[in-house]
């Protein structure tokens, strides 16, 4: 049976970045992770927009950290993937692998 809430492209990248970063995940590190590992340039504001959407779906949760001088006295907001978020990532991976298999045009190549 088809799933109701499938993840968008950037949503999946953000969730994967959260899994990779663990407790160090906040706006800057998430954007860096997507840029370096995902090879995709992204505005930090877009990351926050996606995080807000994911929080509305119950896939991520957040908490405020301490204010630091290099941020002009502003606090970081740390994000964490929820159990439901992890299930969504696994389900999306399974769906993508299912679509990938048995398609000769997608075999080989680097990009």
């Amino acid at each position: 049976m088809a799933r109701k809430n499938s993840l968008g492209d950037l949503e999946l990248l953000v969730l994967l970045a959260l899994v990779r970063l663990g407790p160090k995940a906040y706006g800057v590190t998430i954007a860096h992770e997507i840029e370096t590992k995902g090879k995709r340039s992204v505005a930090i504001a877009s990351v926050y927009l996606v995080l807000e959407r994911l929080a509305d779906k119950g896939l991520v949760k957040s908490e405020l950290g301490e204010a630091t001088p290099e941020r002009g006295g502003r606090a970081k907001r740390y994000f964490q993937i929820t159990a439901q978020g992890l299930r969504e990532v696994r389900a999306t991976r399974a769906a993508l692998i299912g679509m990938w298999q048995g398609v000769p045009q997608l075999e080989g190549g680097t990009v």
Binding site: I44, Y48, R71, G72, R74, R77
Partner: peptide
């Protein structure tokens, strides 16, 4: 949001 502002200041 102030947290986003803080991220930009940091970067």
């Amino acid at each position: 949001d102030e947290t986003l502002l803080g991220d930009l200041v940091e970067e």
